[in-house]
Design a protein around this nucleic acid. Structure first.
Lengths: 192, 192
DNA sequence: CGTTCAGTTGACTAAGGTCAATTCCCGTGG
DNA sequence: CCACGGGAATTGACCTTAGTCAACTGAACG
């Protein structure tokens, strides 16, 4: 099963077997039931996860309201990377939306791998670059587009899984609007 | 003068002299006059810059309108990093707000340094992490705060240079609002 | 069947934008 | 020294977008 993670990593950069062996002994399987949290606002996130099956979302809270900014599906990494990097309490909560199986390992291990091997350092660079590119796209969407345009962008993007598998009120939340507004937007679009 | 850049890099990670020597021959000085662009929307950005003196801003455009999302002052790196990383045309324009002196080098060189040296790879990782952390903070500000809260956040942040040296209509733009709105917000705050 | 929860719809509200007029500040030329 | 011109900032009147609240519909499930 751990090979799923290895394949994922190799999509970023090739990883000699000896490097993989450095991580392997630290991998654990972890199962979360629906609604359980992988990481919580206010806690320092110390683990990296990899979703084997199930799906998750992460959200920020303000005045008790949730703002979802990411959905995780099988075959992707999950962590409050900013909290890991900065070693500070995160502002993010990551929650299993269904029963979910993960492979996990401590961020501290990844950090020590950075020292032990250039290949791991490279993986860390590429992962951060990938994250930054994603964040930038997200930010420009919020900055440049109104609600209807953001919805249209989502429909035209390669995020099919979100449209197919996420209930509408969470999609609204992800777009930064209320379910009521999304319903109206959909009505407006369908009239065209 | 190039030592300014070296000092900047060493704030991320220590860099043995032999590694620094790999970059040194590729450094150039570049001067931009007020209003000149370092990188343009629609062009692939192939250079990394370091501001020796002067200041710059970067902005996105939508329907001919500019949205400023970053100001650069002396002693900081400047580039459309996302365009560099992805090797795609950027959606960002970076413009000198005053006559500006830069140290520049090709991104391709940095990329080759990643292959040549673990220390440079580490720098690349830390730079990307730093960028991601900044983007995340910016995104959450846009997502979670209204205009007045964003302005208050700016005032309470360690971005003094922006408040002191940037004209109000560009601060408004940076906050994602019109100069008219910022003026009203300031009035509201001053009444308290 | 009734309960529950997602989604839809209507009426009203709030935040911020638009447009236009006015004022302020500052540099330049007479 | 004063007058003028131009851009930045302020202010008022009005508009647009999305949020709020509440009522209603509809499907899923015990």
């Amino acid at each position: 099963m751990f090979d799923l993670l290895r394949n994922y990593i190799e999509r970023f950069t090739s990883l000699p077997d000896e490097d993989w062996q450095l991580l392997l002994p630290h991998l654990l399987r972890k199962d979360l039931t629906k609604g359980a949290c992988f990481s919580r606002e206010g806690k320092i996130c110390k683990e990296i996860g990899f979703v084997v099956s199930g799906n998750m979302r992460h959200y920020y809270t303000k005045d008790g309201e949730e703002r979802t900014t990411y959905f995780y599906f099988e075959n992707s990494m999950v962590t409050d990377y900013i909290s890991c990097i900065l070693g500070k309490p995160g502002s993010l909560t990551i929650e299993a939306m269904s029963d979910t199986s993960l492979i996990v390992f401590p961020y501290a291990i990844l950090k020590s791998l950075y020292n032990q091997s250039h290949a791991w350092e490279r993986f860390g660079r590429l992962l951060s670059e990938y994250l930054a590119a994603g964040l930038e796209e997200r930010m420009t969407g919020l900055l440049m587009l109104n609600a209807e345009e953001r919805y249209a962008q989502l429909l035209n993007s390669n995020r099919q899984k979100i449209i197919e598998r996420i209930p509408q009120h969470l999609i609204a939340n992800y777009l930064g609007i209320t379910p009521v507004s999304l319903s109206r937007i959909r009505k407006r679009i369908s009239k065209k």
